Amino acid sequence: MIRCEQLKKKFRRSTVLSNVSLQITEPKIMALIGRNGTGKSTLLRLIAGHLKPTAGKIEVLGENPFNSLQVASNTVLIEESLTFPSPFTLADILKQGATFYPNWQQDLAEKLLAYANIPLHAYHEQLSTGQRATFNLVYGLATRSKITLLDEPMNGMDEAIRTDFYRAILKEYITYPRLIIISSHYLSEMEHLIEEILCIHRGVVELHAPLDEIQTFAVRLRGDQAQIAPFIEHLEVLHAYDEAPFYEVVVPAAQLNVEALQAKGVFVLNVSASEVCQLITSEKKEGIDRVFK
């Protein structure tokens, strides 16, 4: 479905993506994670064919996506900056969507908007931030595109509507499986949805793995530093907090003797996928605490 080889995108003097290589071969729900400015939106726009790569290669559905009608009719990118013609009501926008997307679901769009109390006679530019985000997401789901790209789709929505629309995404995927890539800062809210995580950092792929692998990637150790130190001396420390007598460290779980640590009274705790992604992209292993030392 998507293949990138040493993909690079540069804007004037700024290189956003420097060397991205990845392959996605089947429908799934994926999370695209990374800190602000790491190139998540740029990667989605390259996949959608909205941007041309500076170097490297990208294939979407077997074609170069840039200026490809085949890719455009089977791919949708929903982002905060998405706009529609100002004279069009929401009903007009939906009507136009049906003329372009071969799998368009008019009934689904109308039912979801009715559920969210968004009237079809309203104008897109007059909607509140949360309503606009909801409409955009509904539009994206209604296309039933083979590749559905959602860039921060929940921004502006309140918690209740976010919860509802996470369920809507899952139900739509079950009904009509396709590749759904969600770029979001709400990873902890989405972990029940996603199968795989793609983490971008400094313009390259830092991590690309199934969710269950990332959920078991690291552990948090709490206890006496002298007891813990011998077990982690050869491991990469992802996070450390030392405020005597309290000591905490996060390290990769592989090759760690958990039973021996627990026998010495050390607490061994799981680390969520969301926190793993935060830690492996952090430049400060002590976090914000270092500022107050």
Results as ranks from 00 to 15, higher is better:
Val20Ala: 08
Asn36Thr: 05
Gly140Cys: 04
Ala160Gly: 02
Ala114Ile: 04
Phe292Thr: 08
Pro65Tyr: 10
Ala218Ser: 14
Asp164Arg: 15
Phe66Gly: 09
Glu243Cys: 08
Pro53Ser: 04
Glu286Cys: 08
Val16Gly: 08
Leu82Val: 04
Ile33Met: 12
Tyr176Ile: 07
Phe88Glu: 00
Lys95Ile: 01
Ile161Ala: 06
Pro245Phe: 06
Phe84Arg: 12
Ala226Cys: 01
Pro85Asp: 00
Asn19Cys: 09
Ser14Lys: 15
His185Gln: 08
Ser14Gly: 02
Leu149Arg: 12
Ala91Leu: 14
Val237Ala: 07
Lys146Trp: 00
Thr129Trp: 00
Cys4Asn: 04
Phe84Gly: 07
Glu172Ser: 15
Thr281Ile: 06
Thr163Gly: 08
Lys8Cys: 07
Met157Phe: 06
Trp104Asn: 13
Ser272Ile: 07
Tyr186Ile: 14
His201Pro: 00
His124Gln: 14
Val251Thr: 07
Gly56Glu: 03
Leu44Cys: 03
Leu238Ser: 10
Gly140Asn: 07
Phe267Ser: 12
Ile214Trp: 11
Tyr241Leu: 14
Ala114Asp: 06
Leu179Cys: 06
Leu112Arg: 14
Lys146Leu: 02
Arg3Ile: 04
Asp212Ser: 12
Tyr173Lys: 12
Leu261Phe: 10
Leu43Ile: 03
Val205His: 08
Glu110Asn: 10
Leu77Pro: 03
Asp92Ala: 11
Val291Pro: 00
Ser41Asn: 04
Val250Leu: 09
Leu22Arg: 11
Asp212Gln: 14
Asn74Asp: 08
Leu61Val: 03
Val204Thr: 13
Glu189Leu: 06
Ile93Arg: 10
Ser18Glu: 08
Ala260Asn: 10
Glu243Gln: 14
His185Gly: 01
Leu211Asp: 02
Gly203Phe: 00
Thr83Cys: 04
Pro210Cys: 12
Ala209Lys: 15
His192Asn: 09
Gln105Cys: 00
Ile24Lys: 12
Leu238Gln: 11
Lys293Asp: 03
Leu279Trp: 04
Phe217Ile: 00
Pro230Lys: 12
Val249Arg: 12
Thr42Asn: 03
Leu256Val: 08
Ile33Phe: 05
Ala91Ser: 14
Met1Arg: 13
Gly56Trp: 08
Leu17Glu: 01
Ile47Gly: 07
Ser188Ile: 03
Ala133Leu: 09
Leu193Gly: 12
Ser73Gln: 15
Pro119Ser: 11
Asn74Lys: 14
Ala273Gln: 07
Glu59Thr: 15
Cys4Val: 10
Leu269Ala: 13
Asp151Gly: 11
Tyr241Arg: 15
Tyr166Lys: 15
Val205Cys: 07
His208Cys: 01
Glu213Trp: 02
Ile180Pro: 04
His201Val: 00
Leu238Phe: 13
Glu213Gln: 15
Ser81Thr: 14
Glu213Arg: 14
Val60Thr: 07
Pro177Arg: 13
Glu59Ser: 15
Val20Glu: 01
Phe135Gly: 10
Glu286Met: 13
Leu77Gly: 12
Glu80Asp: 14
Leu44Gly: 02
Gln215Lys: 15
Thr38His: 02
Ile29Tyr: 10
Ile280Asn: 01
Ser21Asp: 03
Thr148His: 09
Asn64Leu: 03
Leu150Ile: 09
Leu61Cys: 07
Gly39Arg: 06
Thr129Ser: 11
Val249Pro: 04
